[in-house]
């Protein structure tokens, strides 16, 4: 384990991704350190201004400072990623573990459920969900959770199926250890590594998904400074005011890139198959 952590320090991908991520985390935690402008106060005298001394990135269509909105929007990106991860990973893990371990009706049913949700297109279903049930960032998070738990369940199920055959499990069963204890205390810790890896790779996907939903007006609602909805508002002005889409989109790109870098680096460290 220690050797792996050491290998991570030497991996260029991880280092780069991590520093980028750390920067974003800092921005999310103390946004006021980076800008003194408010992301919410409109200023109708100064709408759609290009970059100038007072507004580093210019202003949007209501006169709000774009830089400040991007800085404060970092929070929403992290809120989404964290909320989704906190729910999907344990949920997917539990469902996958039960599906892999038990062969009875529940296990089979859960297994089928995993297959079904794996085959569904995530974004489309999420869009349908939010569009029907109601817009807002909470519903967007809920929709992403519903469509994104399946990969973790699949990973866990595969690992549990494999580990179930091992002799040490048989020994535990003969000792009379209950199934749930075997599952969660002995098998579970061995499955964590690929889930961890998949989580990082998926996190960039969550950001892109919530930005996409925001772009269609399904995510965070105005006046929240969420990057996707900022792009939606700016869509009509891009031909003449290019900065309105370049900077928020660039922020999405960089944050997503940082997660991808970490994920790819971990893949080549943790698995030998990472070419």
């Amino acid at each position: 384990m220690y050797k792996q952590v050491l290998a991570m320090y030497n991996n260029k991908s991880i280092v780069l991704g991590f520093s980028l991520l750390a920067l974003f985390i800092l921005v999310a935690l103390v946004p006021t350190m980076f800008t003194r402008q408010s992301p919410y106060t409109p200023n109708f005298d100064n709408i759609l201004a290009p970059a100038n001394g007072q507004h580093i990135f210019g202003t949007d269509e209501l006169g709000r400072d774009l830089f400040a909105r991007i800085i404060f929007g970092t929070r929403y990106a992290f809120i989404v990623v964290l909320s989704v991860c906190i729910v999907t990973i344990p949920l997917g893990f539990t469902i996958g573990a039960i599906a892999g371990y038990k062969q009875n009706f529940i296990g089979n049913f859960l297994s089928r459920m995993i297959d079904v949700f794996l085959a569904l297109p995530k974004l489309i279903i999420a869009m349908a969900l939010v569009a029907s049930v109601g817009v807002g960032i909470k519903n967007a998070i809920f929709a992403i959770i519903l469509t994104a738990w399946a990969p973790y369940a699949r990973l866990t199920r595969a690992n549990v199926l494999q580990l179930k055959q091992q002799d040490f499990i048989l020994v535990l069963k003969l000792q009379g250890v209950s199934s749930s204890r075997i599952l969660f205390r002995f098998i579970a810790p061995l499955c964590l590594s690929p889930i961890f890896l998949q989580a990082f790779l998926d996190m960039s996907g969550y950001i892109l998904m919530v930005a996409g939903l925001g772009f269609l007006g399904l995510g965070a609602q105005p006046p929240l400074p969420e990057w996707g909805s900022m792009l939606a508002n700016a869509k009509d002005y891009i031909l003449t005011h290019w900065w309105l889409i370049t900077y928020p989109g660039g922020a999405i790109l960089l944050l997503s890139l940082s997660f991808n870098l970490i994920g790819e680096g971990m893949q080549s460290v943790l698995t030998n198959k990472g070419f």
Partner: peptide, 22 residues
């Protein structure tokens, strides 16, 4: 490939339209 996985497709379309069309 890394960029391809990290960029949001609507942003790329907007930028492409901006650059190549406008």
């Amino acid at each position: 490939c890394l960029l391809g996985n990290s960029v949001s497709i609507f942003w790329l379309s907007l930028m492409a339209m901006l650059l190549f069309y406008a």
